[in-house]
Nucleic acid binder design. Sequence first.
DNA 1: ACCCAGGGTCATA
DNA 2: TATGACCATGGG
Length: 216
Amino acid sequence: MSFKKTFNTLFRHYGPQDWWPGDSPFEIMVGAVLTQNTAWTNVEKAIVNLLENEALDAEVIVATKMEQLALWLKPSGYFNIKAKRLKNFCQWYLEQGAYEQLSTWPTRELRQALLSVNGVGPETADDMLLYAFDRPVFVIDAYTRRLFSRLGLIEGSETYEALRQSIESGLRRESQRLVLFNEYHALIVRHAKEYCKTTPRCEACCLNKKCKAFRC
DNA sequence: ACCCAGGGTCATA
DNA sequence: TATGACCATGGG
């Protein structure tokens, strides 16, 4: 079993996922903040609220009062904290010259800069790098950690950065790493949504050969 | 009535 | 560096 074989199994089973669900890089970045520890169905409702109020825009968000923004974000949970994080992020985003400027930065520096924004942690930053900026970084979320540790590919308690290095180097020989990383994270989330609804009680939910139909 | 979700920050030891 | 509290809605 390897990271690559696991990917092949998932891809064979589910096919291309066409991620991230969002129509623009900015929408993807907003979604990345809003989905922190939150079900995507709730995030969608918040994004619809922003769209209906013509507020899916960095300048509008910065100009919007905290109470108003929190009201729109309400369905996504943690709405007070997310209102702060979103305004904070948008402020920084505009200061740096928005997407046009940021997209010219080298990946390493862009990542460091994203991480320096309050409210943007490692996974949120990597979501943005991979799905909004098309950079080949491997995103690690709770599902990824759970799946790989059940498969015995990782120990499970590694730091985010250690895991990322280990997984990315495990796939170093792959051409098309951007496409691979894009699909891989999406496939893991798809698999989790489809078969892991009862986790963490479902101990056998994995890609083991014994687990033929991807069942728990 | 619980459990959990595509995390991150901050205070403490 | 490593835990723990906290944030909060909506679906199962």
